[in-house]
Simulated assay, not measured.
Amino acid sequence: MSRLARLVGLPVVALVLVGGVLGVQVAQGGGDFEPLQPADPCAERAVVSRADGIDGLTERLVLLGIDGAACRLGVSREALTLELARPGARSDAEVDALHDGLLSAVQRMKDDGTLPPASDLVDDALGSADLNGFLEAAIRALPDSVVDAALKTDDVLTRAIDGLDLRALLENLDDRDDLNRQLDAAITQAVEDSLAARLRELL
């Protein structure tokens, strides 16, 4: 075979091979390709955290809260995250949706039994609280049953969420990665403060 024939034949062979691959793909359903659709934020999903204590609790709370906010606004969670990360003031609808989404997340975790008892969060709360040694020791000496009877985790979370200035928090975001991180940090601190304050009332 001449050099010219070989050069002309190579593209033909390549086209045949490509056609064969495409034929196999179509036969296997490749012709029905559809782009991935964003997940429905209104659909329940399992949310787990690798963290423990208040950190793990607030991480799940934020993820479920953003889902709830996106559902209320009729957008995907990805679209909402991008929108909230933009510089500038947030609308009343966005702030209200996030607030309500976080509260709904508390109720959902209460309903599905994934809220830990308040006694499981005491060590975290006391670790960041500015208490004198005597008061801290007295709180730690309280039986778990006393703490859990007096403090309900859903109530502590609700108080913490209601006390957050979500508008100011959202206006100070630098990028989309900051959304979860800053919400986590703010809610964690609010929960710790709320829990520590309620624990003082038990003495």
Rank of each mutant, 00 (worst) to 15 (best):
A27F: 09
A27N: 05
Q28I: 05
Q28C: 06
Q28K: 11
G29C: 07
G30V: 12
G30A: 12
G31P: 02
G31S: 08
G31L: 07
D32R: 15
D32K: 14
F33E: 12
F33M: 09
E34A: 15
E34G: 11
L36H: 06
L36N: 11
L36D: 13
L36V: 15
L36S: 15
A39C: 01
A39S: 10
A39F: 00
A39N: 01
A39I: 08
D40Y: 04
D40V: 08
D40I: 09
P41E: 10
A43T: 10
A43C: 02
A43Q: 14
E44P: 04
R45N: 03
R45L: 09
R45Q: 12
A46T: 14
V47K: 01
V48G: 13
V48T: 15
V48D: 08
S49K: 02
S49D: 09
R50T: 15
R50A: 15
R50W: 03
A51R: 11
A51Q: 13
A51E: 14
A51H: 13
D52I: 06
D52Y: 06
D52F: 05
G53W: 02
G53V: 13
I54D: 05
D55I: 13
G56R: 02
G56E: 09
G56L: 05
G56H: 07
L57A: 11
L57Q: 07
L57R: 03
L57K: 04
T58R: 03
T58W: 00
E59L: 11
R60P: 03
L61G: 00
L61M: 10
L61E: 05
L61Q: 08
V62L: 05
V62I: 13
V62H: 01
L63W: 03
L63P: 00
L64Y: 07
L64H: 09
L64G: 10
L64M: 14
G65R: 03
G65W: 03
G65A: 05
I66G: 05
I66T: 12
I66F: 04
D67M: 07
D67E: 13
D67W: 00
G68V: 05
G68A: 04
A69W: 05
A69T: 12
A70F: 00
A70K: 03
C71Y: 08
C71I: 10
C71D: 10
C71G: 05
C71S: 12
R72V: 04
L73G: 11
L73R: 15
L73M: 15
L73P: 11
G74A: 13
G74I: 07
S76L: 08
S76Q: 09
R77F: 00
R77N: 12
R77M: 07
R77S: 15
E78M: 12
E78D: 15
A79N: 01
A79D: 09
A79S: 12
A79Q: 08
A79P: 02
A79M: 02
L80V: 14
L80F: 06
T81R: 10
T81G: 14
T81K: 01
T81Y: 00
T81L: 13
L82C: 01
L82M: 05
E83S: 14
E83A: 14
E83V: 04
E83W: 00
A85N: 08
A85L: 02
R86W: 00
P87L: 03
